[in-house]
Simulated scan of single mutants.
Amino acid sequence: MKSLDRTYETLTLEEATPGVVVLTLNRPDRYNAMTNQMFVELERAALDLDQEDDLRAVVLTGAGMAFCGGYDLADADGLADLGAIQMLNQQERAARSLVSVRSIRVPVIAAVNGPAAGGGLALALQADIRLGSPEAKFNAAFVKIGLTAGDLGTSWLLTRLVGPAVTSDICFTGRMVYAEEAARIGLVNSVSEPGKLMEDALELAGQMVANSPGGVQLSKKALQANMEIGSYAAALELENRGQALLTRSTDMPEALAAFKEKRKPVFKGE
Results as ranks from 00 to 15, higher is better:
4 L>T: 13
5 D>W: 02
8 Y>I: 00
8 Y>C: 07
8 Y>S: 11
15 E>W: 10
23 L>H: 05
24 T>W: 07
28 P>C: 00
29 D>A: 12
32 N>C: 03
33 A>K: 08
34 M>R: 10
39 F>N: 15
42 L>W: 10
44 R>I: 06
48 D>I: 04
53 D>Q: 14
55 L>E: 08
59 V>I: 15
61 T>G: 01
68 C>D: 13
70 G>D: 08
73 L>D: 07
75 D>V: 01
77 D>Y: 10
80 A>G: 09
81 D>M: 06
86 Q>G: 13
91 Q>W: 07
96 R>H: 09
97 S>I: 02
99 V>R: 13
99 V>F: 05
100 S>P: 09
104 I>W: 05
105 R>S: 15
108 V>S: 06
117 A>I: 15
118 G>R: 01
123 L>P: 13
128 D>G: 08
139 N>W: 09
141 A>S: 15
143 V>I: 11
145 I>T: 10
147 L>D: 06
150 G>Q: 12
150 G>Y: 09
151 D>R: 06
151 D>S: 13
152 L>F: 12
160 R>V: 03
171 C>F: 02
175 R>E: 03
178 Y>H: 12
186 G>H: 05
189 N>T: 11
195 G>I: 04
196 K>M: 06
198 M>H: 12
200 D>T: 05
206 G>H: 02
208 M>K: 00
208 M>D: 00
211 N>T: 10
213 P>H: 02
215 G>V: 03
225 A>T: 15
226 N>R: 08
227 M>F: 05
228 E>A: 09
230 G>C: 06
230 G>K: 09
236 L>P: 07
237 E>S: 14
238 L>E: 11
247 T>F: 07
250 T>I: 01
252 M>R: 11
254 E>I: 00
257 A>R: 15
257 A>N: 13
259 F>V: 02
265 P>F: 05
265 P>A: 03
267 F>P: 14
270 E>Q: 13
